[in-house]
Amino acid sequence: MKQPEPEYTYPTYHRPIPATWWLRDRKYFLFMMRELSSFFIAVFLLIYLYGLSLLSKGQAAYGQFQETLRSGGFTLFFVVAFIFAVYHSWTWWSIMGKVQVVRLGDHKVPERVITAVALAGWVVASAVVLFVFTR
């Protein structure tokens, strides 16, 4: 049988959360940096898509765009975006062991092994992409 729930009323104090909450602790700061990394990755993708759309406008238009990308400002942006992308990917792959349960028959593959395989896969895939595009 369902019991009625008593409702008590009493005053409570709600503490405001300061806007700088993420600066108080290194762990929360790193979390916010991971969140911020999405911004740089999104801007990079927009630039990339814009470049692709220029391909249909002919070689000259695309060539000029590539020239613009070589400017100091863009280079700096790409370096920062790259660092953020690596950091974000690292955090992503390094929790793989926690996220994915892998069973081999009755045996559960240890978390650390799954994470190590995921990280190794990431490095190998990146190396292959790098090799193909810089050949």
Binding site: K27, Y28, F31, E35, I95, K98, V99, Q100, V101
Partner: peptide, 26 residues
């Protein structure tokens, strides 16, 4: 959940709620 992961760090009983949430997502 945006996977801050601190729930797991502070848990005195090693429950690892962050893991539970990510596994539930999968």
């Amino acid at each position: 959940c945006t996977l801050v992961g601190e729930c797991t760090e502070v848990c005195p009983k090693r429950v690892d709620p962050a893991m539970a949430i990510q596994r539930t997502k999968v």
